[in-house]
């Protein structure tokens, strides 16, 4: 169970990205977060693993208070929370397998990293993760030589290395074409259904949310605008979330 209480984030320039968000997300849900650009989707996701420190409020995950964790505790919490990004955030010059193994760093003795040593078993684990996302044959290529969809799958494999119980996906398909988008979303769905990983995924397209999510959370100007199953979003709700002039675009 992930509990978000009165979460507020005000940036140093005074911009209020999130105001008083309250959420409860049970284990195993696939939650889509929708909203316009700048509505606070990324800030919300980054507050959960404290890539951004919230201004006020608490985030409690499995009884652990993330917001008050010390650096060391935070690292232990973070290694159970996977995250994938819109820009994939791979080290482009490094090989695919190195990128995937770097997802395991939270479990490896930091002294080993100084000499770039990775235990054998982690290597095997990385190959297995790549196998799972279907690009094991690319393991020793440079990350930059892969297509966008393949890079995002490397990102998923990297998150898998953490043995995550919660997965944060920040616009994972916004840089991809529709067909590739679906393939990446399918992998996320697989993780949700097979491994029971809770997934919080911010999306631009409502159609993707309708196709994959159990529950949709809509943000507007940092406030919670809607929280419920995707079927409940009718035209009126849609305009509330996206503004009067918006038209829903289907993505196939």
């Amino acid at each position: 169970m992930l509990i978000i209480e009165n979460l507020t984030k005000i940036y140093e320039n005074g911009f209020k990205a999130l105001s008083n968000i309250n959420l409860e997300i049970p284990e195993g849900q696939f939650v889509a977060i929708i909203g316009l650009s700048g509505s606070g989707k990324s800030t919300l996701l980054r507050c959960i693993n404290r890539l951004i420190d919230p201004t006020e409020g608490r985030i409690i995950w499995r009884g652990l208070d993330i917001t008050s964790a010390t650096d060391d505790e935070l690292r232990q919490i973070r290694r159970r929370i996977g995250m994938i990004f819109q820009q994939f955030n791979l080290v482009k010059r490094s090989s695919v397998i190195t990128n995937v193994m770097s997802g395991r760093l939270g479990y490896i003795n930091p002294l080993f990293s100084l000499v770039n040593y990775v235990p054998r078993v982690e290597h095997e684990r990385a190959l297995a993760a790549l196998e799972r996302v279907g690009i094991a044959e690319k393991a020793y290529q440079r990350a930059s030589s892969l297509s966008g969809g393949q890079q995002q799958r490397v990102g998923i494999a990297r998150a898998l290395m953490q043995n995550p119980e919660l997965m944060l996906a920040d616009e994972p398909v916004a840089s991809l074409d529709p067909a590739t988008s679906h393939s990446v979303m399918k992998y996320l769905e697989l993780l949700n259904k097979e491994d029971g990983i809770t997934i919080l995924c911010s999306l631009h397209f409502l159609s993707l949310a309708r196709a994959y999510a159990d529950r949709v959370i809509a943000l507007k100007d940092g406030r919670l605008e809607f929280d419920g199953p995707p079927e409940q979003i009718d035209n009126e709700r849609f305009r509330q979330i996206y503004g009067e002039d918006a038209v829903e675009v289907e993505i196939h």
């Binding site: 973070r78 820009q87 490094s94 395991r104 760093l105 479990y107 990293s113 944060l168």
Partner: peptide, 24 residues
């Protein structure tokens, strides 16, 4: 991006530098 990604995996500062900064 890679720095953010590695921080989110629970890597410490030294590891983040070795794996996200040094290769670049």
């Amino acid at each position: 991006g890679p720095i953010e990604a590695l921080q989110s995996t629970g890597a410490n500062r030294l590891q983040t530098i070795m794996y996200a900064v040094v290769p670049q």
